[in-house]
Design a protein around this nucleic acid. Structure first.
Length: 225
DNA sequence: ACCCAGGTGGCCC
DNA sequence: GGGCCACATGGG
């Protein structure tokens, strides 16, 4: 199984190259982006980030001083702007309690930090893991809808992946991929990039990378998307 | 005019 | 513990 995941990783890397996620100029920008991208496409998030930068409030202490209402108007393009402005505020409360000390968050115990992030209203498992992995260099695997869909269709044996809980799937990946921060970082990014790529033109399974020999494809001729 | 997007929390049973 | 729903913009 470990060999299988390594091969998938190598194939994706060969096809798409290094992704060097997360695209951002600062740790805080990664964190904000992780919240704004919830159920939203990245190009919409970019507009919101642009606004925050133009208004000079893409800094923890500045944003903490910004009213929730003003924040909402600046992030409209990211969708769910009322919900997300509240979530950003909740997250800023957490940062404030931690004295905006990112280094302290980096060296905090992994499970302790994850628990604290999950306690914030508006931060679920995927957002918590994204912040930990891409902003704070914690080795924690990020599961998302793409991960479930891509792998469950890759192998018939993986169909269970659409049904298990987030943490169960996360553990399965962590037990079967190399114990390496860079791998964690790059693998999730490649899964997202590949998933978006094959969805773009809504091809048949036989046209997708990995899908030529996949069990799902043999079973049916259904579309990938 | 649909459908979906790198989720999450609240409510109900 | 699981099934539904609201949240909202923008692109295909």
């Amino acid at each position: 199984m470990k060999q299988f995941f390594s091969e998938i990783y190598e194939s994706l890397l060969k096809k798409y190259g290094k992704q060097n996620w997360w695209p951002a100029d600062s740790i805080f920008e990664v964190m904000v982006g992780a919240i704004l991208v919830q159920n939203t496409q990245w190009f919409n998030v970019k507009k919101a980030i642009r606004n925050l930068k133009d208004e000079k409030i893409l800094e923890p202490r500045k944003m903490a001083l910004c009213s929730e209402e003003r924040l909402a108007t600046l992030i409209v393009h990211a969708g769910y702007y009322n919900v997300k402005s509240k979530r950003l505020k909740n997250f800023l409360d957490f940062l404030m309690i931690n004295r905006f000390d990112f280094y302290a968050l980096k060296i905090k115990q992994r499970e302790e930090l994850r628990e604290q992030l999950l306690n914030i209203n508006g931060i679920g498992p995927e957002t918590a893991d994204s912040i930990m992995l891409y902003a704070l260099d914690h080795k924690t695997f990020v599961v998302d809808a793409y991960t479930r869909r891509m792998f469950s269709r890759l192998k018939k044996d993986f169909s269970w992946m659409t049904r298990v809980t987030y943490d169960e799937l996360k553990s399965f990946f962590e037990e079967n991929i190399p114990d390496d921060l860079y791998f964690y970082n790059e693998f999730h990014a490649l899964i997202v990039v590949h998933s978006k790529d094959i969805c773009k033109s809504k091809p048949l399974c036989g046209e997708c990378l990995f899908m030529k020999k996949c069990d799902y494809c043999k079973m049916s001729k259904k579309s990938c998307s």
